[in-house]
Design a protein around this nucleic acid. Structure first.
Length: 798
DNA sequence: GTAGCAAGTGTCTAGACAGCATGTC
DNA sequence: CTAGACACTTGCTAC
C-alpha cells in the first residue's frame, strides 16, 4: 500500500511522510490500515521491534486528531517518552501539537489539555487519572507501547488498571496496543476488543544463531567460521569478525561487573580498527564523559571509550548513557557491552547482537535462572540497522555441543512466553484498590470487583475467586490503616458527592462524575469511601504500605526527628529500592545502628529476626548515603564508599526527594508537629546541603558547591549577597557572568561585575592558611557546629 | 629475588516509575 | 531442581 492511498489524515501528513522517505507501507502497517487504524478501530499489533510499530500508532493518532480528537501515547520509560516526543514533534509542521508528561518532565495538566498528542509513562497516566485531569475524558485514541510489559510483576498492573480506567472514561475511544511478539497476542486482542495483527515480518532479515567452538551456526542452516584465537573470549572473536566488515556489535551480559570487564577486554579488539579521525573524536567523547562526573565509573568508561568500546548499565549517569547511545548510533563506538538496560530502552541497533549470558542470578530461584524467551528475543531484536545493514545477526554463546543444542531449542526455535496478568498480587492490588475507590471508579466491594472484571486478569483467569479473596484482604488492610471507611448503605437519594473530595458537599467533580455514576451502587452494599488520608495517599502516588510506615513513624516520634531518622523512615518503605548489604557491612551498619539508634523512628525489628533486621540495616545504609549527600560529601566519595555509580546516587536522591515530599504532605494531613522537620530534610536532600546552606541555595544559580564557597566567605544568606563586597563574591563564584547572574537573582540593585577583582584568596584576610584548610576540608569533617568530629570520620570511612 | 603463571578462594549479582515546582558547576 | 564470572591471593617454577 502506498502512502498516497491513505485517507483521513491531517492535510500535510502524507507529504511529510513522503519527505521522510516513506512511500510504501510495510506489510504490517498496510494490514493495520486495512483493519481500520485510520478509522478508529481497535488494534493490537504484535510485531517485532523496529518493524514500523510507531507508524501504526502515528496513523491511528493522526486520523483521530483529524476527526477532532485527542491522542495519548503511553510508554514504559521516561527515556522513551522523550524519544517519542521528538519523533512526533515533526508533525508540528502540519499543525499537530505534542506534549510530554513524566514524573520529572515539566507540564501542568492545563497545558497538556491543549495538546493533540500527549506522550506519558504509564505511572504518570495513572497519576493523572488519580488527580482527575479533565482532559483525559477528551481522549479519542490511546496507544499503549510495549503492552507485553503487563506481564511485569511490579509495573504491569499499573498499565492494566490504567487502561481499564481510560476505557471506562472514554467508552468509544480507539485503543491501539503495540507489543513484542508474544505467545498470546490473541488474548490481549480479545481483552481490548481489537483486531489482531500478529506477524514476524521485519524490514531487515534477522539471522539467529549459536557460536560454539570455531563455528557460528545460523537458524537458516548457514555456517560461518569464527575462530577463537588463543586465550581470547568468544565474544571478542565475534566482535572482531563483524568489525572487519564494518559492523558494530552489542553484547548482552548479566551483571554490571561483567559489562565493565567485557568492555575493557573488547576495547583491545575495537582499538585495532580505528582510524585516526575516530581516535580523535573518541578522545573528545572520553573527555566529555570524564567531565560529566568525577567517579571511578566515569574514568573506567572513558578509558574504554578511547578505544572504541563502552559499557552501559543503570549505574551510569543519564548524560553518560545518552553520550554512549548516541556515539554508538553514529557508529563511532564499535561495541557496547550492556546489561538489559539497553534491550528495553531507546533504539540502539547493531549489526551483530551477542547474547553472552543467558542466565541471570535470581535469589528466588536459588541460583542462576534462564532468561525468558521474550527477553532474549528483545535483545536479539536489536540486531540489524535499517538502511545500513544487509541483515542483522543475533548470536548466543555456547561452551559445548550440548549447550549449543539447548540454546537452539530454548531460544532460537522457541516461541515467547504468553503474557500473564500479575494483578492478583497483594502489593499491586493494595495500591490500585485504594486508587480506584479514591478516584470514584468504585464505591462498593461489588463495584470494585465489577471494575476489576474489565482487566486482563479477569479475562485470563475466568474465575474471580482469587481476585475477590485478595481484594478482601486488601480492603481489610486499607481500613485498618485508616485509608478507607466502610459505611452502612444509604438511600439511593444520596447525592453523589465528589468522589475525590471528602468534604462531601462538592457535588460537581468534573469529568469523573460520570465514571462514578457508572459504579455499581446497589443499595444493599455497604459503601467504601476513601478517608481524607486515603485520598492524599492515592494522589501522592504512594504505596499505601509506604504511607502507613511513614505515618506510624512520624506519630511515634517524641522529639524532633533528625534528618537521618527521616531518611531511614522513607528508605525502609516499599517505594524505595533497597541498597543491599555487602559482606561485612552488616557489622559496620550494626555498629552505626547502636550509635544512632535513638534517631531512628518506630520500633526496630529484633535482631533475632534476621531478615527483617537486615532490611532495617539496609535502610539505614541508604539513609546514611542520603545523610552523606546532605552533608555535602562529593559524588566521588559517595560512589566509592557505597560502591555504586553516579546514576545510582542520582536515583536514590530522586526517590528520597519524592518520598520526603510525600511525607511532608502526610505530616500535614495528620497534623504532625514534625512537618517542618520533614520539609527541611527534604530540602537538604534536594540540594545536597547542610542546614546552614538552605537559605543560600534558594537563590537561583546557587547549588551545593557555590553555596558552600559563599558561606565560607561569610555570605550566609541571600540578604548578604545584596550587601557583600563584590570582590568576595567574585572570588567565591569565579566567573563574572555567574556572579552577576546570581547577584541579580538575589535581588541586588547593581549586579554588574565590571572592573571588580576577586578579593580574598591568598591576600588579606585573617590567615590564609586557616581559611585555606577550612575550604579544602570536606564537609564530612565538619559537624553541625563546626567542630571536628572524630566519631563521624571513623564511622564515615568504611 | 622475582617475573610469570596456575590454582585456589572469596565476593557478589538487572532495572527504574511516582508529587510538586523549577533550574547545578 | 538450580551458578559462575571476576578479582584477588597464594604457591610454584624457571630463570
Amino acid at each position: 500500500m502506498n502512502v498516497e492511498e491513505l485517507s483521513g489524515l491531517p492535510p500535510g501528513a502524507i507529504d511529510h511522510f513522503r519527505e521522510d522517505g516513506i512511500e510504501e507501507l510495510y506489510p504490517p502497517q498496510a494490514e493495520a490500515v486495512e483493519a481500520g487504524a485510520t478509522e478508529g478501530e481497535n488494534l493490537v499489533a504484535a510485531v517485532p521491534t523496529a518493524s514500523g510499530k510507531t507508524m501504526i500508532a502515528a496513523l491511528s493518532m493522526l486520523s483521530a486528531i483529524e476527526r477532532g480528537g485527542k491522542a495519548l501515547y503511553i510508554v514504559p520509560l521516561r527515556a522513551l517518552a522523550s524519544e517519542k516526543k521528538e519523533e512526533f514533534e515533526a508533525y508540528e509542521q502540519f499543525g499537530v501539537t505534542v506534549g510530554v508528561a513524566t514524573g520529572n518532565y515539566e507540564s501542568t495538566s492545563d497545558w497538556l489539555a491543549t495538546k493533540d498528542i500527549v506522550v506519558a509513562t504509564s505511572e504518570k497516566v495513572d497519576s493523572l487519572v488519580r488527580n482527575g485531569a479533565d482532559w483525559l475524558s477528551d481522549l479519542t485514541c490511546v496507544v499503549s507501547d510495549e503492552i507485553h510489559l503487563i506481564d511485569d510483576r511490579e509495573r504491569g498492573p499499573t498499565l492494566e488498571v490504567t487502561l481499564a480506567k481510560l476505557r471506562r472514561l472514554n467508552p468509544g475511544m480507539q485503543q491501539v496496543a503495540l507489543s513484542a511478539t508474544v505467545g498470546n497476542a490473541d488474548e490481549i486482542a480479545g481483552w481490548l476488543d481489537a483486531e489482531l495483527i500478529d506477524t514476524d515480518w521485519r524490514p531487515i532479515d534477522l539471522k539467529m544463531g549459536v557460536h560454539y567452538g570455531n563455528a557460528l551456526n545460523f537458524d537458516d542452516g548457514s555456517t560461518r567460521e569464527v575462530p577463537v584465537e588463543g586465550s581470547e573470549k568468544q565474544e571478542a572473536a565475534l566482535v572482531r569478525d563483524i568489525l572487519q566488515e564494518g559492523g558494530s556489535s552489542l553484547v548482552f551480559v548479566n551483571s554490571r561487573r561483567n559489562a565493565e570487564a567485557a568492555a575493557r577486554r573488547l576495547g583491545q579488539v575495537s582499538r585495532e580498527e580505528l582510524t585516526a579521525d575516530e581516535r580523535a573524536e573518541l578522545a573528545e567523547l572520553a573527555a566529555e564523559i570524564r567531565d560529566d562526573s568525577d567517579t571511578e565509573t566515569s574514568t573506567d568508561l572513558a578509558d574504554c571509550v578511547e578505544r572504541g568500546s563502552a559499557f552501559h548499565h543503570a549505574g551510569l549517569s543519564s548524560t553518560q548513557r545518552s553520550l554512549v547511545e548516541d556515539a554508538f548510533r553514529d557508529r563511532l563506538l564499535k561495541v557496547i557491552s550492556a546489561t538489559p538496560t539497553l534491550a528495553a530502552g531507546v533504539n540502539t541497533p547493531a549489526r551483530r547482537v551477542i547474547v553472552r549470558d543467558w542466565r541471570r542470578f535470581d535469589p528466588s530461584a536459588g541460583g542462576m535462572a534462564p532468561l525468558d524467551v521474550l527477553e532474549v528475543h528483545q535483545m536479539m531484536g536489536r540486531a540489524g540497522r535499517p538502511g545500513l545493514d544487509p541483515y542483522g545477526e543475533a548470536v548466543l554463546l555456547a561452551k559445548g555441543h550440548d549447550e549449543s543444542q539447548e540454546l537452539f531449542d530454548r531460544y532460537v526455535w522457541a516461541d515467547p512466553e504468553p503474557v500473564r496478568s500479575k494483578l492478583a498480587a497483594e502489593p499491586a492490588l493494595r495500591t490500585h484498590v485504594l486508587a480506584t475507590i479514591a478516584s470514584g471508579f468504585a464505591r462498593t466491594r461489588e463495584g470494585l470487583l465489577e471494575f476489576l472484571e474489565a482487566t486482563l486478569y479477569a479475562s485470563q483467569s475466568g474465575e474471580s475467586g482469587r481476585l475477590a479473596a485478595v481484594t478482601d484482604d486488601v480492603l481489610a488492610y486499607l481500613e485498618r490503616n485508616d485509608f478507607i471507611e466502610r459505611e452502612p448503605p444509604r438511600g439511593s437519594g444520596r447525592s453523589s458527592g465528589g468522589p475525590r473530595e471528602r468534604d462531601g458537599d462538592d457535588p460537581a467533580d468534573g469529568a469523573f462524575t460520570s465514571a462514578a455514576d457508572l459504579a455499581d451502587q446497589s443499595e444493599e452494599d455497604e459503601e467504601l469511601e476513601a478517608t481524607s488520608l486515603g485520598h492524599t495517599v492515592s494522589r501522592l502516588y504512594l504505596d499505601p504500605m509506604s504511607a502507613a510506615d511513614i505515618v506510624h513513624g512520624l506519630e511515634s516520634a517524641d522529639d524532633r526527628p533528625t534528618a537521618l531518622g527521616l531518611y531511614q523512615l522513607v528508605s525502609r518503605t516499599p517505594d524505595m529500592y533497597e541498597l543491599y548489604l555487602r559482606s561485612g557491612e552488616d557489622e559496620q551498619f550494626g555498629e552505626l545502628y547502636y550509635e544512632r539508634e535513638a534517631e531512628l523512628l518506630g520500633d526496630a525489628p529484633s535482631e533475632f529476626e534476621e531478615d527483617r533486621f537486615e532490611d532495617w540495616l539496609a535502610a539505614l545504609k541508604t539513609s546514611k548515603l542520603l545523610e552523606d549527600w546532605a552533608r555535602e560529601d562529593d559524588e566521588e566519595r559517595i560512589t566509592e564508599r557505597y560502591k555504586i555509580g553516579p546514576g545510582d546516587l542520582r536515583g536514590k536522591v530522586d526517590t528520597a526527594e519524592w518520598l520526603l515530599g510525600a511525607a511532608e504532605s502526610l505530616a500535614q494531613e495528620i497534623d504532625s508537629e514534625w512537618t517542618v522537620a520533614v520539609r527541611e530534610a527534604r530540602a537538604r536532600v534536594e540540594h545536597g546541603v547542610s542546614e546552614e546552606l538552605l537559605e543560600l541555595v534558594s537563590v537561583g544559580g546557587v547549588g551545593r558547591k557555590r553555596a558552600r564557597r559563599l558561606y565560607e566567605r561569610g555570605i550566609e544568606e541571600p540578604a548578604d549577597l545584596r550587601s557583600a563586597d563584590k570582590g568576595v563574591v567574585l572570588d567565591a563564584l569565579k566567573g563574572e557572568k555567574t556572579a552577576e547572574n546570581i547577584l541579580e537573582n538575589a535581588g541586588r540593585e547593581d549586579p554588574s561585575m565590571d572592573g571588580i577583582e576577586p578579593a580574598g584568596g591568598e591576600a588579606g584576610n585573617d590567615g590564609s592558611e586557616a581559611s585555606g584548610s577550612e575550604a579544602t576540608k570536606t564537609a564530612s569533617e565538619r559537624t553541625e557546629d563546626g567542630e571536628p568530629d572524630d566519631s563521624q570520620s571513623s564511622l564515615g570511612d568504611f
